[in-house]
């Protein structure tokens, strides 16, 4: 499995993880060896086998449509990095 620097940059950007050049190089090697190990699994014959997203075959429980949550803004915002007037703040997003 070969991965190139461009792929790692693209994935890192999708995942919003900043990488410097050295790190990017290291992750190229890591991803190659991990995906190399994963190759073994790709060889398993699975024709006609349905994917299994959950190990237990159960169905979704439904919640009655009632309001159960009270306002806890102050508590939730106590450890927030930046808030003002109840809003969470981030650098201006240019539309």
């Amino acid at each position: 499995m070969s991965i190139d620097a461009e792929q790692v940059r693209r994935i890192a950007h999708l995942a919003r993880i900043g990488l410097d050049a050295d790190e990017a190089d290291r992750y190229i090697g890591d991803l190659e060896s991990i995906l190399g190990m994963v190759e073994r699994m790709r060889a398993v014959p699975t024709d006609g086998v349905a994917p299994l997203p959950h190990p237990i075959d159960l169905q979704q429980r439904l919640r009655p449509d009632v309001v159960t949550e009270a306002d806890q803004r102050d508590l939730f915002q106590a450890d927030a990095p930046a808030v003002a007037e109840g809003f969470y703040l981030v650098p201006r997003v240019v539309e």
């Binding site: 109840g86 809003f87 969470y88 703040l89 981030v90 201006r92 997003v93 539309e95």
Partner: peptide, 15 residues
């Protein structure tokens, strides 16, 4: 909702 014109240089987020 992201509000872009409320605070200078900042986007305010209301969830």
């Amino acid at each position: 909702k992201s509000i872009h014109d409320q605070l200078p240089g900042l986007t305010a987020v209301d969830l």
